[in-house]
Write a protein that binds this DNA or RNA. Structure first.
Lengths: 217, 217
DNA sequence: CAAAAATTAAAACAGTCGTTTGAATGAATA
DNA sequence: TATTCATTCAAACGACTGTTTTAATTTTTG
């Protein structure tokens, strides 16, 4: 048996287990969960097939580890970002909250742009709920509740339930950028993506706030 | 060989071919494309396994037919809705354009709420691009281009590329409602869903327009 | 009614799937 | 050094995959 797989992550050993996780991640991004076989993972990771079961117990266990490895830091960063915002001197703004929620998806703690993570989250979000729900909901529900609470205080005139919906749609817009790095007909370059990130913030802020300038829309 | 399968759709024969399409649709919604086997479809449709290949040639051909059957009327309705809006007496509004784009997803020509269609579109959108792209892009690109053009005339001060992004995000918000009929923590009832549809229109209109009331957001 | 075409049926094809087994290694401990 | 433990390996398990083939059946046509 592996030594409490999820916890013991020896710095000195970037081998089998991590190699499986890395290539599983890439293949799942490209072909989805059901479309990715353990043999394909083992081959591309230069690892024996049985190693996947040895380290993760089952295919379900493997994808659970793949997701958890990426989601855990994101959830933590999202909460601490909100903490420091609330502790800070400036008054809270919706824009700041949106950025606090969004930034951990795209940048690591050294503010460097993340490569595969966004694609993974986008892909996993698209998987059938029966697979995804037990893996995502547990971690995500708490974070979402916290953000909805904060947004509600910033939108005192909007019923909480409607805030929940607006947040729901904002997640949809974010997922859209995670999955397709640029809209149809726009070349997908690095700079385009960064600009899209900016547009995404503006879009979700407007959607969350919804204070149109009186024109009959 | 089947008699030009896609075209010849005898009104009098709601049998094999349609039964395959119907149950394939339901199973794909629940388990995704790769997660649905032709045998599972054949069994649940009370149809011989070989019938799937006889009528659709291959599994790819089957999902192509499943998607096309639903998307074709949507694309057509979206275009004619825009036509009659432009021919109408009233000036175009973003809200009207959004509704023209959104309504065919949820209501048929008799204004009755569609059941499985939204879930199918949401699910297919989540599939790996390698499968989805050739099936969706062909039909959708033209419709999207038309809508982006109209939106651009309604937003003369916004660069077309940014309009494209805003439309991109709007699609994401729509997909979110297609996939999850209610946000986390909100009970998913019929009435909730209808209300969510209203909120979705408001949200996307605000995101497309982005004329916030001067407050430093 | 007879001939032709379209459709359905049963069975097998060659692979691939996730999972398990048991022996061969490697590293750590005593 | 000897021994225990963790890890890797090759091989096979039964079940399931999309697809093809061949024959039986139904439906349409002349």
């Amino acid at each position: 048996m592996p030594a409490t797989a999820t916890e013991t992550n020896d710095e000195t050993n970037p081998s089998t287990r991590d190699r499986i996780l890395d290539t599983a991640e890439l293949l799942i991004i490209e072909h989805g969960y059901a479309g990715t076989s353990l043999r394909a993972i083992a081959n591309q990771a230069d690892v024996n097939l049985a190693a996947t079961h040895y380290h993760f117990g089952s295919k379900q266990g493997l994808i659970a580890a793949v997701i958890h490895r990426r989601m855990a830091p994101i959830s933590a960063a999202r909460l601490t970002a909100l903490d420091s915002l609330e502790a800070g001197p400036q008054p809270l703004t919706i824009r700041a909250v949106v950025k606090a929620f969004l930034t951990p998806l795209y940048f690591d703690e050294r503010n460097e742009l993340l490569a595969v993570l966004p694609s993974l989250i986008g892909r996993v979000y698209g998987e059938p709920e029966s697979l995804t729900k037990p893996l995502l909901e547990q971690e995500f529900t708490q974070v979402a509740a916290r953000y909805i609470n904060v947004l509600s205080t910033l939108l005192p005139d909007v019923p909480t339930e409607e805030v929940r919906w607006r947040f729901h749609f904002s997640i949809g817009a974010m997922i859209q950028l995670l999955r397709f790095h640029s809209p149809l007909g726009v070349a997908s370059s690095h700079d385009q993506f960064i600009q899209g990130l900016d547009y995404l913030v503006n879009y979700t802020v407007a959607g969350l706030l919804q204070t149109n300038s009186g024109t009959a829309v």
